[in-house]
Computed example of a mutant assay.
Amino acid sequence: MVALTRELRGGAASDEEFARAAFEWVRDEVAHSFDAGDTRVMLTAAETLEHGVGLCHAASHLLVAVSRVGVA
């Protein structure tokens, strides 16, 4: 999580750019479980990041976690 956040934060000149980059990364890199045919249910941000798949709430958890690390 920290490595991803550093990567996204490093390419952003502002908080707004970081937020956009984090949102777009999660949107583009985390497959929706139903669309991917994956029956697993991810509950945590770490699980979602590790497996690259999750339902909407799992992707939201990941986005919030990356955002929190990014502003710390």
Rank of each mutant, 00 (worst) to 15 (best):
L43C: 09
H61E: 13
T39E: 05
V41D: 06
A45S: 05
T39H: 03
V64E: 05
A36N: 04
T48L: 02
A12E: 00
A65S: 12
F23C: 03
H32K: 11
E50P: 05
T39P: 11
D15Q: 12
G10A: 00
L55P: 06
S14K: 07
L4G: 06
A12Q: 00
D15V: 08
D38G: 09
R9G: 13
S60L: 13
R9N: 02
F23D: 10
A65D: 11
D35Q: 14
R40M: 08
G11K: 04
R9A: 13
S14H: 12
S67C: 14
D35L: 14
F23T: 15
E24A: 14
W25D: 05
V2G: 12
G37V: 06
R40P: 08
A19Y: 04
A65Q: 12
M42N: 10
A13F: 03
R27H: 03
S33W: 04
L43N: 15
V66P: 02
R40C: 00
A21C: 04
E50V: 13
V71D: 09
E16P: 03
A21I: 12
E7I: 10
V66N: 13
A59W: 07
L55M: 01
D38P: 12
E50W: 13
E47K: 03
E17Q: 15
H51E: 09
S14L: 06
H61P: 04
V69F: 06
T39F: 11
A72M: 06
G52Q: 01
D35G: 15
T39R: 07
R27S: 12
R6S: 02
A45M: 03
A19K: 10
G52L: 05
A21D: 11
A31R: 01
T39I: 12
V2K: 15
F18N: 01
V53W: 07
E17L: 09
A19W: 07
C56W: 12
G70F: 10
E7C: 08
A19L: 12
R68S: 06
H61F: 10
A12N: 09
A22L: 01
V30E: 05
R68L: 14
S14R: 00
A58D: 08
C56G: 13
E17C: 07
A58T: 01
E50H: 14
G70C: 05
A46P: 02
R40E: 01
R27L: 10
E29R: 15
L49C: 02
L55Y: 14
V41H: 09
L55H: 10
R6E: 03
W25F: 14
